[in-house]
Design a protein around this nucleic acid. Structure first.
Lengths: 252, 252
DNA sequence: CGTGCTTTTGAAAATCATCAAGTATAGTGG
DNA sequence: CCACTATACTTGATGATTTTCAAAAGCACG
């Protein structure tokens, strides 16, 4: 069963640089790339950048959904909770990830930084107004939502039908793929062989629908089988990609 | 473990009525409601309605994604498979449901009718072209995708963290809510107390990440506890909504 | 009234969870 | 620099929910 610790506070840093969006590292990886350079001023006027320190939550499940968010750097975990504390992490949001899409007036999930983050906040009404003028932005949002839907279906397959070993293999490979960044619209190419895990074992367990003990045991077993190495708890070396691949896809 | 039976054929019925979209029962419940009456001719010229009989599949996972689909009547199951036959049903698509949203060039899931269906097929390039001219349609698609994303997160919580009893209670209540139709944009109000289950126990199991035996056992147990009645296998009476509700939300 | 299907029920087995220690690791203050 | 503490991670023993294997009971259909 999951542990729970809520720390809702957030640090707002309104440093008004000359043209922040133009120099944003995350733009090529985010929906903001749908906005032409000449229109960036308007985007920048809506964007409220702020920092979140590790462990701090910046979206509370059930709160009124007044903002959209765009992750500039760092990683967040997105999760849903049951009243008794059981938690399901529905995804990790990294650089370029867009958060807060919802028709409902309240957030359907919570979000908490797993490492220090920088985030751009947008007021929902203002960004909605901007959507009217920039159909390309709406198109990009639809693309992003479609991609997330595909990922969600993949995760349902994992949670509903895969074994613990298969879940870990799938997770590690997905992390390896996600670690090499590719701008929006570009197909993914390379796969890292060293995976960095900024999240705790508890987070991994809550993401894979397992317990922290099962995650730990499964990793040591994969290590014993020479499929991976675990030089430090937060760092995993993929030694046998082929074996991990067939494990992840349900063979073996 | 899931059984598998593929029957890819589909019956195309190109009956060209005078103004089919205007008289479509599904329009108020679907993205098509974003198109004004005066533009319906154009929509109708793109729509290829066809019938699918129960048990027939009309989307094959991995096939080139050449079409979008809009469900006019009946119910489909959407699923992903593992090579050894394990199956996860990611959702059921009823009247008004839009299918095929994907950036990828291939379908990420399969779809099969669980009862006789009528479906409108749209060629992807043609519908994309129409999106250019009707931003309201794109907006509606984004809304639909957002709603599905919320549902997917809810399902991840179910698959990753809920017990068999909780899963069944959640499923039955969701069915009860989904049975009373409400047009797009309207909040849901009523909840039926008799649930019709057009899908088999195997489908329910593959949707809830359980086995057919566990589904059956759990239903008989809920019956023994007077929470439900099962007059016939395809029909379930919800006798104690309050108890089911608290079960579904993880209390008890 | 068989035949073939889905569903239900039963007994045994297994994976994963729970309970409980023990081991690192990082940060703190003397 | 070295205890000392807090936290995260690992490992072990036990247990429980769910799966697997097996068979019986309903139900539709020819």
């Amino acid at each position: 069963m999951a542990t729970f610790r809520a720390r809702p506070l957030v640090v707002e840093t309104s440093q008004q640089l000359p043209d922040p969006c133009a120099h944003c590292d995350a733009r090529p990886f985010s929906v903001c790339s749908a906005i032409e350079d000449r229109d960036l001023q308007r985007l920048a006027s809506l964007a409220h950048p702020f920092a979140v320190e590790a462990g701090r939550s910046f979206i509370e499940e059930g709160d009124p959904a007044e903002s959209f968010f765009n992750v500039t750097s760092g990683t967040a975990k997105l999760f849903k909770m049951l009243p008794d504390g059981r938690r399901q992490i529905t995804g990790f949001a990294g650089m370029g990830h867009f958060l807060g899409l919802a028709v409902s007036s309240t957030y359907a999930f919570g979000a908490e930084a797993v490492e220090p983050m920088r985030i751009c906040r947008f007021s929902r009404p203002k960004l909605r107004a901007m959507l009217e003028d920039f159909p390309a932005l709406e198109r990009r949002l639809l693309e992003a939502a479609s991609n997330e839907l595909v990922a969600a279906q993949e995760q349902m397959l994992l949670l509903g039908r895969k074994t613990a070993r298969e879940r870990l293999a799938t997770f590690l490979l997905a992390r390896a793929d996600g670690q090499t960044l590719s701008p929006v619209g570009c197909a993914h190419v390379s796969r890292a062989s060293i995976v960095r895990l900024p999240m705790t074992r508890t987070d991994i367990a809550d993401y894979l629908g397992l317990t922290i003990e099962t995650v730990s045991r499964t990793l040591t077993r994969l290590r014993g089988e020479r499929l991976i190495d675990v030089p430090s708890p937060a760092e995993i070396v993929l030694r046998d990609m082929a074996a991990l691949d067939s494990l992840a896809s349900g063979l073996n």
